[in-house]
Design a protein around this nucleic acid. Structure first.
Lengths: 138, 138
DNA sequence: CATAATTCCTCTAGGGACTAGAGGTTCAAG
DNA sequence: CTTGAACCTCTAGTCCCTAGAGGAATTATG
């Protein structure tokens, strides 16, 4: 059995975050010692590892909760889980596209400024003040 | 003079957000009518446009506040403003790099799953459960 | 076995950048 | 002058934690 600190060490999830996940229903309430401290088994460790990895990949708590509840019925078709992952991929791609546009604009803005002039002629300030300086929509 | 709604229409910043910016000190407290409603002049409109654009480019409220306070001294060198923009660009690039890694992983995970099998053999679930399935760090 | 150091408990609050809603007031048009 | 839209303040909620207070339990050391 693992203490909450041991779970934290093994997964890299911070102790308060583990308690938070329990509150959110991602982890079942842990067993307790006589002195009210949490004790976890191997299954809880696996689940926390799963949660950690899904969070690292950007899944929301809600999506993870759904994946977990789907996982409770292993004989069911996996279309639902697959869809959640595809939604997440689509979301990542959308954010990626937006960030790429930002990068272009910011690079243009920064490149246009030597940093040696005075602010009233500063390219950065002018570019921020006026969207028309931009190449892309954002 | 513009009402807060007119400001909103002209900049695309929502009305409660304009009030929020005032609370945060990005906008000077507006003049008021006898009935306590906000009235803005052209300078406030310009500033809100500036804020909007900077937010669209991902600058934090804090960074924008600093740009604005720098802008109050147009005769000063623009190195500070330039640095803020370069920091923002670096931040965007870091997030971009991370998202690109996520995209690779998610694409791999999703591609490996037809969505037609059952969950106990689901590639998505297995990949999430075990980081060792991954190619990159994230 | 006593003490000390560490870990654990619960609870509340904060953060960033808004957004939503309640309950009430003012303005502009007809 | 009346109606209806827009405005006001204030509180609370979103998301995903993180920090801290104040106190109890566990583990390590002497």
């Amino acid at each position: 059995m693992f203490s909450i600190g041991a779970m934290s060490d093994r997964t890299g999830v911070k102790v308060p975050t583990i308690r938070y996940y329990e509150d959110m229903g991602l982890l079942a309430p842990a067993e307790r010692t006589a002195g009210n401290q949490r004790r976890y088994g191997a299954a809880a460790l696996d689940r926390l590892t799963f949660i950690r990895h899904a969070r690292d990949l950007g899944f929301t708590i809600e999506a993870i909760a759904e994946l977990i509840s789907l996982g409770a019925h292993p004989d069911q078709p996996c279309a639902g889980a697959s869809q959640i992952a595809r939604d997440q991929l689509a979301d990542v791609r959308a954010r990626l596209a937006r960030l790429q546009r930002l990068e272009v604009e910011l690079d243009r803005i920064v490149s246009g400024c030597s940093g040696t002039g005075t602010l009233d002629k500063c390219h950065v300030m002018a570019a921020l003040a006026d969207h028309d300086h931009c190449v892309t929509e954002h």
